[in-house]
Design a protein around this nucleic acid. Structure first.
Lengths: 122, 122
DNA sequence: CGGCATCCACATGGATACTG
DNA sequence: CAGTATCCATGTGGATGCCG
């Protein structure tokens, strides 16, 4: 494969990092992949530990970049559904590589419950 | 595979992102992988567009995390050599996934010269 | 339920100049 | 050659409260 990096400004690795290299972007993408469709609060619970402001910012950014689709499914009560676009789904190999590396090389804190990642996640 | 994410604090994807999710970390790792060993200024040129202060910070962080080995190869003239540790090399699949995704899905700016990534980079 | 408004703290990066 | 020292701008995230 070809990569531009040597002395150049643009590099696919850096460019990719700019797109998904924020604290919660990878997990949000992963949770959306696993669940297919999630509401705002569902997503917040699924991700765990993220504030609503930051989740809102994250989703706004992911939507602007074309990774996430936002659909208003209902009004009264308000129901908004988030899901991955095809472009967003194309990131699976990257997310999976990060997940696999983390599982293989990092130690989870005591008492962490592990959740299975389906085989078709790839 | 197993992943902890649902409602938990710890998640391998996020944890991995915390380690290499800074602007220049992936490229620095990639350049060190490609070249095996580089001096400070060599590395700065190879990466392209990074200031010496930020490169210094980046290397300090990567060294503290065990990804990079720093060796003083000579004094007068001073020569310091940076290379990947085994732990650092273990990140190849992640970096490669990012590189491949970037090549497949992003458009480089006009006039960008592409450099080959060897097949054994994996 | 699905947010937005504020305000704040800190992390990160960039530019420039200087040094042994 | 390989950094350090400043200084500054911005990005990013976190806490809290309120709203239709």
């Amino acid at each position: 494969m070809e990569v531009a990096c040597a002395g150049e400004e643009w590099c696919p690795v850096t460019a990719t990092g700019k797109l998904i290299g924020r604290k919660w972007h990878p997990v949000v993408i992963m949770e959306l992949y696993l669940a297919e469709t999630l509401g705002f609060n569902e997503l917040q619970r699924a991700v765990g530990g993220i504030s609503n402001k930051v989740l809102s910012d994250t989703l706004e950014d992911l939507e602007a970049k074309g990774f996430v689709d936002r659909e208003i499914a209902n009004e009264k009560p308000v129901r908004v559904e988030y899901s991955l676009t095809e472009f967003g789904e194309s990131l699976e190999p990257v997310i999976r590589a990060m997940a696999e590396w983390g599982v293989d090389h990092l130690e989870p804190p005591e008492g962490t419950e592990m959740v299975s990642l389906p085989d078709d996640f790839y």
